[in-house]
């Protein structure tokens, strides 16, 4: 009798192993994706371009010329920025279902950059003590966030 129970137990274990084998055809679990070389590189490029733009802008608000900070003198930068955002958005569209975090980050970044341009377009006065450092922080933090997540996704988070 004890032998029959033992045999049944072994059969159940064997069946469980077969079921596990069937379920485990794809052993790797993927919860998040969204790594894209282009997004990673563009975010770094945007950071470099933005900071160059910011330093130039700050220089113009620390002098006594009330007109040199006008947005019309910075159109080239904003055109380039617009192009980078457009390309990031296009690229993020094809990242796949598990990449919503990266897509959301790009949407947030676009809104931040457009708001920066809007504040600039509204006009900036000279020597008020407001060097817009909070806006520089916001842009840099947002771009850093994208590159940090891209770094984390680089090994196991490539979109298929």
């Amino acid at each position: 009798m004890a032998t029959a129970i033992e045999i049944t137990r072994q059969r159940i274990i064997c069946w469980l192993i077969i079921v596990c084998c069937t379920l485990a055809v794809s052993c790797k679990v993927t919860l998040i994706t969204g790594y894209d070389t282009y997004i990673d590189e563009t975010a770094m490029k945007m950071k470099r371009d933005f900071n160059r733009h910011y330093f130039r802008l700050v220089r113009t608000i620390q002098d006594n010329d009330p007109n040199n900070q006008n947005i019309s003198h910075f159109i080239a930068y904003y055109d380039e920025m617009e192009l980078d955002i457009m390309l990031l958005q296009d690229r993020s569209k094809y990242l796949g279902k598990k990449s919503t975090m990266v897509q959301q980050q790009i949407a947030n970044l676009a809104e931040i950059m457009y708001t920066f341009r809007k504040v600039h377009a509204a006009g900036i006065k000279d020597n008020t003590g407001d060097d817009k450092r909070d806006m520089q922080n916001a842009v840099n933090s947002s771009l850093n966030a994208i590159t940090e997540l891209q770094m984390a996704l680089r090994i196991n988070g490539k979109s298929k």
């Binding site: 998040i32 931040i112 708001t115 922080n137 842009v139 933090s141 966030a145 940090e148 997540l149």
Partner: peptide, 24 residues
């Protein structure tokens, strides 16, 4: 309002990164 909105969006991006790293 505009500048606070920028802060809010930037913080969202930071939190998305922290959540994303947690998921990884």
């Amino acid at each position: 309002d505009m500048r606070l909105k920028m802060q809010e969006l930037s913080l969202k991006n930071v939190l998305l990164t922290i959540a994303g790293i947690g998921i990884v």
